[in-house]
């Protein structure tokens, strides 16, 4: 299938999904309210800690808030467009994947274009708004180039997350259940979102840089934009989120292809 045709079909599917979800206005409003309240409370807790203690691992409250918001925006972006990657094991179990394989369109496209989540778009807005406000409170006025870099980091962060999710969920081709492995990384993601990674030691930084590079979603981008020291520096620090994104997408794509090639259907 020609890429442009695929892209237009993807856009069309997403629009349909958005419209169907926007029909349930009260549900949507409640979900957006919920996401806002929970994230506001998270930031309030960070504020309680960092107004009493001037810094955590050398990062001030507004720097930590910026770190948190970057992750929130990247997570929202990933969930908006790639949310249904987590359904891979369910599609295998209930046989829906067989139906998808029969259609003359890429399976991944069909899966991702199922619908779009306006709730997660709200998360992107909250994250970006919070990041802007944090920078404002830090007295940093980013120029256009820096904002473009921030947005590029956001896309890279979503790609890192998407690649990791695709790789982990594709394990479902062999284990039938895979969402549970993703759940196993839940607390690790929470930790990286809330606190600067170096607070937990060099081994932890290594883990979230080289094994499961969640730090490339917010820690390295925030350090690069705020000028904070990390284990890497210079051009490598600025490029690390993009390298991690390329690595994660490649790894995710490989596991997905291997899984799809070895897929023998449920046989029902």
């Amino acid at each position: 299938m020609r890429p442009l045709r695929g892209l237009s079909l993807y856009g069309h599917y997403l629009l349909l999904g958005f419209r169907s979800q926007a029909e349930y206005r009260v549900d949507l409003a409640l979900m957006i309210f919920g996401v806002t309240v929970l994230n506001a409370v998270d930031v309030a807790l960070l504020a309680v800690i960092l107004t009493r203690f001037p810094a955590l691992g050398g990062w001030s409250f507004w720097e930590v808030a910026f770190l948190y918001c970057l992750y929130l925006a990247a997570l929202g972006l990933e969930n908006t467009f790639l949310l249904h990657l987590v359904d891979i094991d369910e599609l295998i179990r209930d046989g829906t994947l067989d139906h998808m394989l029969l259609r003359p369109r890429p399976v991944l496209l069909q899966m991702l274009a199922k619908d779009i989540s306006p709730r997660d778009l709200a998360q992107v807005g909250l994250g970006l708004g919070g990041a802007w406000y944090s920078l404002h409170r830090l007295g940093l006025a980013l120029g256009v180039a820096h904002w473009a870099l921030l947005l590029a980091y956001l896309v890279a962060g979503a790609a890192v997350l998407g690649g990791i999710v695709l790789a982990i969920c594709s394990v479902g081709f062999w284990t039938v259940r895979s969402r549970v492995f993703l759940a196993g990384t839940g607390e690790l993601q929470e930790v990286v979102q809330h606190y600067p990674a170096h607070v937990f030691g060099q081994w932890f930084v290594g883990l979230v840089t080289l094994v499961l590079p969640f730090a490339a979603i917010n820690y390295y981008p925030a350090a690069a934009l705020l000028g904070k020291p990390t284990v890497v520096s210079g051009p490598l620090l600025a490029l690390l989120p993009f390298l991690a994104a390329a690595g994660c997408l490649t790894a995710g794509g490989l596991v997905w292809r291997l899984g799809l090639r070895s897929y023998l259907s449920t046989g029902t």
Binding site: D27, L30, M31, F33, G34, V35, V37, L38, A40, V41, D42, A44, L45
Partner: peptide, 14 residues
């Protein structure tokens, strides 16, 4: 539970 649950969880968290 939407909405109510989030508000309730926020209260406990805080």
């Amino acid at each position: 539970l939407k909405g109510v649950q989030h508000a309730y969880h926020a209260l406990i968290t805080l």
